[in-house]
């Protein structure tokens, strides 16, 4: 039986890195936990995919407090990738997640190339994971803590190691804290990336003028939210022109118009992050908005990807 609603949602069906998606709207890593927390508030089965919080080999304790500070139309965070580790994830979070409809994309983190590969190896034994998103914004302990994501050689090395440890599609998540995002994109695609996701947070800081000290215990943190959207859209535009693989676009998306900007700049799918903190159902509203837009315009979502070029 085909209803009007089915027809509308069919306009959103797409594929990223070989993963079939009911719709191109995802929730960004670190802003949706392992999915369960928000499930009481909304129908998470209507999401295209859930990108889970970064998962490491062993538990990471993260940074000291304070970890967040609000900034104009945005926020800085220095959570430090606190997470209970891959064993906990597989035991406690994944069994619930794999029962849900959205594709599960696991965000992989590590402090060495070997750690990334180890997480990928462990996850490769599990059912119900659609892809690995490789968060290359982590500190490279062997290179004095400089992020893998700012060095094309180190980034390619991580991606190749993950690729060799998994049968799943590998989606590197690019850091925007580089002069030339296209060099990073080319490096990871050459190393075997099936898609790229961008952007992660922008390095920033705030001073608490009352205390005459940095507002975050970690001094610097990652900026997210509407404040970064034009920067993120620009990077998606550049990467679309530089590589052939699909792009998952994110950075400050709050509504359907924001999502359309990313799609028209070249993103095949989008992810909602910080906006969820304010309105948990933002991603669902974006999804409904895209369906209505496609219907009104008489197009499928795939026909919109990169149309602004």
């Amino acid at each position: 039986m085909s209803t009007t609603q089915d027809h509308e949602t069919n306009l959103l069906v797409t594929q990223i890195a070989g993963i079939a998606l009911d719709n191109p709207v995802m929730v960004a890593s670190g802003t949706f936990g392992y999915g369960r927390e928000y499930a009481t508030l909304m129908d998470i089965d209507r999401l295209g995919a859930i990108m889970v919080k970064g998962v490491s080999v062993t538990p990471w304790t993260g940074n000291p407090m304070p970890r967040i500070v609000e900034t104009p139309a945005g926020m800085l965070n220095a959570i430090g990738l606190q997470n209970p580790g891959v064993a906990y994830f597989c035991r406690e979070a994944l069994p619930w997640l794999r029962q849900r409809k959205p594709a599960v994309i696991v965000n992989v983190i590590g402090k060495t190339v070997e750690e990334y590969a180890e997480v990928a190896t462990r996850l490769d034994q599990e059912q119900g994971i659609a892809a690995l998103e490789v968060n290359i914004s982590c500190p490279n302990v062997k290179e004095g803590g400089i992020a893998f994501g700012t060095d094309p050689v180190a980034a390619a090395e991580v991606v190749a190691a993950v690729k060799a440890s998994t049968s799943l599609p590998v989606i590197p998540k690019l850091s925007p804290n580089v002069t030339d995002i296209t060099a990073m994109a080319r490096a990871v695609v050459d190393a075997g990336a099936s898609a790229v996701s961008l952007v992660n947070t922008f390095l920033g800081m705030a001073i608490d003028v009352r205390k005459k000290r940095p507002a975050l215990a970690n001094v610097m943190g990652g900026l997210s939210g509407p404040a970064i959207r034009p920067l993120a859209v620009r990077m998606v535009w550049q990467v679309y022109e530089a590589v052939q693989v699909p792009i998952i676009g994110m950075g400050g998306i709050t509504c359907v118009e924001d999502a359309l900007e990313f799609i028209m700049a070249g993103a095949g799918a989008v992810a909602v992050g910080t906006a969820t903190f304010r309105h948990p159902t933002t991603a669902l509203q974006v999804c409904a908005g895209l369906a209505a837009y496609c219907k009104a315009e008489g197009v499928t979502i795939n026909e919109l990807v990169g149309v602004a070029h």
């Binding site: 670190g30 928000y38 993260g62 970890r67 965070n77 959570i79 903190f277």
Partner: peptide, 15 residues
């Protein structure tokens, strides 16, 4: 503590 999500996902409010 300062909070972002209030729903347990951001880990910004830990004690």
């Amino acid at each position: 503590e300062h909070m972002a999500c209030g729903m347990g996902v951001c880990l910004g409010c830990v004690c």
